[in-house]
Amino acid sequence: MSQVTANPNVTTAAEPKVKSASPWVLAFRQVRQSKLAIFGIVMLLLMFLICFFGPFFSPYTIDTLNIRNGNKAPSAAHWLGTDNLGRDILLRVMLAGRISLLVGFVAMMVSVSIGSLLGAIAGFYRGWVDTIIMRIIDIMMSIPSLPLLIILGSILSDWKIPPSERIYIVMFMLGILSWPGLARLVRGQILSLREQEFMQAAESLGLRDSKKIFRHLLPNTIPIIIVNATLAVGGAILMESVLSYLGLGVVPPTPSWGNMISAANNLIDFQKRPWLWIPPGVCVFITVMSFNFVGDALRDAFDPKSKSKR
């Protein structure tokens, strides 16, 4: 193809180097304005660094038992004290953090992939496909999740699944229970996006359905997916804590914040040895709160209506 009206003096060198700002970049610039979001991001980064690298600097290992040294209050040797078996609480909190954060992320990823995929398919094809998916969602949403998780947890206990494998099952359980909310949101967005003129234009180019869904429609729903995913990580960590607290999620000896907090079940530990349960509790609190700050800031950044309020 030759050039009809090609501009002969096309110069690119003289142009100032300005990187094109994608809608995402613009939104993240907005997030940077929010102090709470910065606080949340910093706290989360700290939490990650401490949990994933901290254990390497600890003089103790997870198997270091010292029963004579059990239930000691915080000291120079054990900054956060020791538990009834003489294990270092600081180390256990960090290792538990790895597990809890991992559970949060995997559960979120399971939930986001199922939710956005099924939501997009339901919204794009409409008709009977939509009906089937939406009825499944209705059913999932009308089952109370806590009793269901408790039942599943006790089945797992009954089958005597080893604790190391059990955490993976917990991750998927949490993810599978939380996708319907996101699927609904994505479906709603896709339903309105598919009627936009640019989709008609995409259709007139002869694109396949998969291209239309994954390249043209889903990227437009990323704002709500990101917001939802951020909040879902916090939710999953909280839910994992609840389950582990009840002894049905991650079970000892694998530490998780939830099963460490369950020390508070014991009246003597609760009253006399707060170093057993306060550190993991504070960690859950800070982590979930930070995720929520970041999620809220992202929502404000992506929502055009909330910008004017400031």
Binding site: S20, S22, E197, Q200, A201, E203, G206, R208, P219, N220
Partner: peptide
Amino acid sequence: EMRYLRGNEIAMIFQDPMSSLNPVLT
């Protein structure tokens, strides 16, 4: 077969350029 023709042999320009391009793709 129709999809092969669309955009390839028969192409279309729409009325409103402001809304005919996907906002999230370059």
